[in-house]
Amino acid sequence: MWQLLEPVHATLYYAAEASEEAASLGYATDERWPGYFAYRAAPLGPAVPGVVNALFYSFSPRMVERFAAPAWRTAAPERVLAARNTAVDRALRRLLGDRIGSPELREAAELARRAAEAADTAGRPMAAANAALPWPDEPHEVLWQAATILREHRGDGHIAALQTHGLGPAESLVSHAAAGAAPDEVFASRRWTGEDWTAARERLAARGLLEADGRATPEGLRVRSAVEQLTDELAAAPWEALTPAETARLAELLVPPVLDIVATGLLPAQSTLGIGLKYDHA
């Protein structure tokens, strides 16, 4: 379900409409990060970089300082949230076309909302901040908000799983790359320096989790698998609000719009999340 809902959520960070709305607020758009940090952090209110760094986890602190520190001097969180809503509305209307307003999209939105509303946000600040926002009226916007609550709920749990297994921010990326989730170059988007990356590798190697060439050892693969398993377990509770048949129905309903989104080439084929967006259209 995460793999089906993540492309819906991720439209915000890659769609041209998101860049346009960010630009209208005064954010630079020569790269996506000024808008990304503002859009994603806005539900928290005027969060300082240290808070954003703690909750986003895998970004270099220097990167967070660069983009989060000036965010609220450019526009207040309330204005960013309004722009975010407009960007999502515009982007999904373009990407989904005739599916907007369809009975199938409305049904998907209703099912996803039920799961999102069942998410326990205790100890999950990113999920809690998004769950506290008012629900929109239009089904495509409801679907996006539900996807966002559920992915941030999962992300908060993922951080807990990483910390349970002793993987700090840089180590979390190095271990994920070492396990084959994506090439090292994909993880460079988090702006850790070469020295940071090497130091994280050395710490993991000292624990017996990495080979000398940077590949995961069998123990490294076991730890990484344990992280992902615990993440899934911590993300499972909201789905208990739906019956297995309802969850299967939601998956069925999501495939066509997700294929529409992926087919545009809007989203990267590989990301730091380890999702390969290569859906079979057959």
Rank of each mutant, 00 (worst) to 15 (best):
L4R: 14
A161S: 14
A119K: 03
R191D: 14
L25M: 13
A42D: 00
A132M: 06
A91V: 07
L277P: 00
E252N: 03
W33I: 00
L173C: 08
G166T: 07
L273I: 09
L92Q: 13
L221V: 12
V262C: 03
Y36G: 05
S189P: 02
F59Q: 10
A76W: 06
E141M: 13
A108V: 04
R124A: 11
A236H: 08
E17Y: 00
E104W: 08
A131L: 12
K278Q: 14
L254G: 03
L266V: 07
G220W: 04
A129N: 04
P70D: 02
E152M: 08
P218F: 12
P46E: 10
V64S: 01
A205K: 02
E31S: 14
A251N: 10
L273G: 14
I261F: 01
V223K: 00
E17T: 07
E219H: 10
A109Y: 04
T247H: 09
P43M: 01
A251H: 05
Y39F: 15
T247D: 08
R224V: 00
A91R: 07
V186P: 09
T198V: 13
A226C: 07
E107F: 00
A181W: 06
S60N: 09
D98Q: 14
N85D: 15
S58A: 13
I159S: 00
T164E: 15
T148S: 12
R62N: 10
A188C: 10
A205Y: 02
A42M: 00
G168A: 03
D184F: 05
A182K: 03
A248Y: 01
A199Y: 09
I261G: 07
S189L: 14
D30S: 14
L167V: 01
E6I: 10
T198Q: 14
D156K: 00
A68L: 06
P257E: 07
I275H: 15
L250Y: 10
P169E: 04
P139Q: 03
L273T: 15
A182V: 02
P136G: 01
T243A: 15
L210K: 09
E107V: 07
G194N: 05
I100K: 05
R114A: 11
E17V: 10
P139S: 09
T74K: 12
V262M: 05
L167G: 01
